[in-house]
């Protein structure tokens, strides 16, 4: 019986069954409650922090605010320059794709050691669908695995069943596949040709070759590079851009629109 159900419930199915939805719907409010309680507990303990510590923090934040304001001015100037350059270049990369984003809160994580998943507090009622890409401002998180009415399971890129097409941001010719290894602090870039100019600290982004993930999303940075047995391929460890242990909010890409040349010329 187990083999029949395993075969019938592969990752490709669009909908989860009624009983799965029922179990999720029973757990979701409880998990949201625990998540809320932990956030509130954090707020409560802050009140008891030393006044001097808080004053020092305020000064630090004011200083940081001034620095960020200055940086922001420089970045605005750079952005304007980037737009001008993009109008000159005929073939642009699609890293400035625009996304329709839906924010969601992480309410729980995988209950066992075999799957790297998160559960978020948005489901089909909020428009979440299976296969949608999940990101944070820092980089790629994973994709929506299964959806119930008010929650959804996110398969993290660190899951052993995940593979993402990737390229290096510095060297667009270098293609590879990012594989999850069940460790939240470690990914592996596989199938890189031996002649590729891959270097330590290179930035890895999504290639857009897979149907699931849009092009240009930051995945992580290259660590140690090793030559595979046979000598024709390289592989490399990759440090994920996202800290999966501290993930509290995520953004779901519900739709994305690649920037076209005509849009850029008109400045949209």
């Amino acid at each position: 019986m187990s083999f029949i159900t395993i075969n019938l419930t592969t990752n490709d199915r669009e909908q989860i069954t009624g009983i799965e939805k029922l179990i999720r719907n029973l757990y979701t409010p409880l998990q949201s409650g625990v998540s809320e309680f932990r956030v509130n507990l954090g707020d409560f303990t802050t009140i008891f922090q030393n006044k001097n510590t808080l004053n020092t923090k305020i000064k630090m934040l004011e200083e940081e605010n001034r620095r960020i304001s200055l940086e922001n001015q420089v970045l605005r100037e750079n952005e304007a320059e980037l737009k001008r350059l993009r109008n000159i270049v005929a073939f642009v990369e699609s890293s400035l794709d625009t996304y329709d984003l839906l924010p969601a809160r992480v309410i729980s994580r995988s209950p066992n050691n075999w799957y790297q998943t998160l559960i978020i507090d948005k489901g089909s009622n909020a428009g979440v669908k299976m296969g949608m890409t999940v990101i944070t401002p820092k980089g790629l998180v994973g994709s929506v695995g299964s959806v119930s009415d008010n929650s959804a399971h996110i398969n993290l890129i660190t899951d052993r069943e995940m593979a993402v097409g990737a390229i290096l941001q510095e060297n667009r010719d270098t293609n590879g596949i990012i594989e999850g290894r069940g460790d939240r602090t470690f990914l592996r870039l596989m199938n890189v040709p031996y002649y590729s100019a891959v270097k330590n600290k290179n930035r890895v982004i999504t290639s857009g070759l897979s149907l699931t993930f849009p092009k240009g999303i930051f995945i992580g940075t290259i660590g140690e590079i090793t030559r595979e047995r046979g000598g024709l391929l390289l592989s490399a460890s990759v440090k994920p851009a996202v800290d999966f242990d501290k993930l509290e909010e995520v953004l779901i890409i519900t739709d994305y629109h690649p920037v076209t040349e005509s849009q850029e010329e008109t400045g949209e």
């Binding site: 395993i6 419930t9 799965e20 179990i23 209950p111 066992n112 695995g145 299964s146």
Partner: peptide, 11 residues
Amino acid sequence: EDLYMGRFIGI
């Protein structure tokens, strides 16, 4: 567990 995880039911 399988029903909660929603992957391969029965594993």
